[in-house]
């Protein structure tokens, strides 16, 4: 047995280089020189781990050529990078009222842009740019955690309903129906209001709760489609364990639309979280900046100082746009009909 294995492995060695050659040849005709090097690198690194081209790899190949994806991913990367390095970029402590003496209730004045403070201050005299920069951390974190929790909950419900069917399915889906029947923002507000003390944590839970039924229903549908598919029937005919059928044969095939939805949901989560903060259901302590909360506290100054609302609102829109663009392009890339 051992001998036959080694002879089999010997056969593969001459084959591997020819495959890499052909892939680099193909790219030479289609793509420019700069890109070719990157693709060659990818082909080599991918070739080591797996001989085959998985769904993920073929989706990635198409994504790299999609301008929508590149723009969206660029936006997201820029903001994530910003969130990571913002403590270094921010020149001032966002909680300090450094420009407090320039704030006047009487003539409704707010610190204008000045040396050291490119965007001026907010209505408490805190440095606006530093708050904006550090606010990216909170906003992205809240959106990410809320989506992760929502995804986790939705996956659990979807797997239960889709894999077992029958009364489990009925029970889970009726709960989902109830949750979906309440308008999402109203649901989030109600859940946020359940907590004694408002904090970022309540925002996360509220936003996640809104997402759970959406993910759950989506996954249930795709799981049911998988359950009726030929390859699941074939796996059952081979006596494959139920656990393996659900997690190896059904779930990975059912996940595509859920991944797309998750990306789109990040955008929704950012907007929902901002809406909750805007409505005053966010953290009561405003010393840690967050865009939604900044936008909310700027509402009294819309007519006199619109820039207070413009900057956080602009950031929210651009980040949400980034996630939406990535989601859209992912949906196209994961479309099995376009797969080659």
């Amino acid at each position: 047995m051992g001998r036959s294995e080694t002879s089999g492995a010997g056969d593969t060695t001459p084959v591997a280089p020819t495959r890499q050659e052909s892939s680099s040849e193909g790219s030479r005709t289609v793509l420019g020189t700069k890109r070719r090097e990157r693709i060659d690198g990818l082909a080599e690194s991918g070739g080591d781990t797996a001989a085959g081209v998985s769904l993920a790899a073929s989706a990635w190949r198409r994504l790299r050529r999609s301008p929508t994806f590149l723009v969206g991913a660029g936006i997201i990367c820029a903001f994530v990078l910003l969130a990571l390095v913002s403590p270094l970029l921010a020149q001032h402590d966002p909680a300090l009222r450094l420009l407090e003496e320039q704030v006047s209730r009487a003539d409704n004045s707010i610190p204008p842009p000045q040396p050291g403070f490119p965007l001026g201050g907010d209505q408490y005299g805190r440095p606006l740019l530093s708050r904006l920069l550090l606010g990216s951390q909170q906003t992205l974190l809240v959106a990410l955690l809320a989506t992760v929790i929502g995804l986790g909950g939705g996956l659990t419900l979807g797997i239960l309903a889709g894999a077992f069917g029958g009364w489990v399915d009925t029970l889970v889906m009726r709960v989902v129906d109830v949750l979906l029947s309440v308008p999402s923002l109203l649901l989030a507000v109600s859940i946020g209001a359940l907590f004694q003390q408002q904090s970022q944590f309540t925002v996360i839970i509220a936003v996640a709760t809104v997402q759970i039924p959406i993910f759950g229903r989506l996954l249930r549908g795709t799981m049911l489609a998988q359950r009726a598919s030929d390859h699941v029937l074939a796996a059952r005919a081979l006596g494959v364990r139920q656990r393996s059928i659900v997690f190896r044969h059904m779930l990975p095939n059912a996940l595509g639309p859920v991944i797309v939805q998750a990306t789109l949901m990040l955008a929704v989560a950012i907007i929902d979280a901002a809406a909750l903060s805007f409505l005053g259901l966010g953290a009561a302590d405003t010393s840690t900046p967050e865009w939604g909360q900044m936008l909310g506290s700027a509402q009294n100054f819309f007519d006199t100082h619109p820039h207070l609302a413009f900057w956080p609102a602009g950031c929210i829109i651009v980040v949400a746009l980034g996630f939406t663009l990535v989601g859209e392009s992912l949906r196209d890339a994961l479309d099995p009909k376009k797969r080659r």
């Binding site: 998985s54 769904l55 598919s229 030929d230 390859h231 029937l233 074939a234 005919a237 044969h249 990975p252």
Partner: peptide, 15 residues
């Protein structure tokens, strides 16, 4: 058991 359509009877995401 061997099924009719070999394309759909194999799991597309597992080697």
């Amino acid at each position: 058991m061997v099924f009719q359509d070999p394309l759909t009877s194999l799991n597309p995401v597992v080697p």
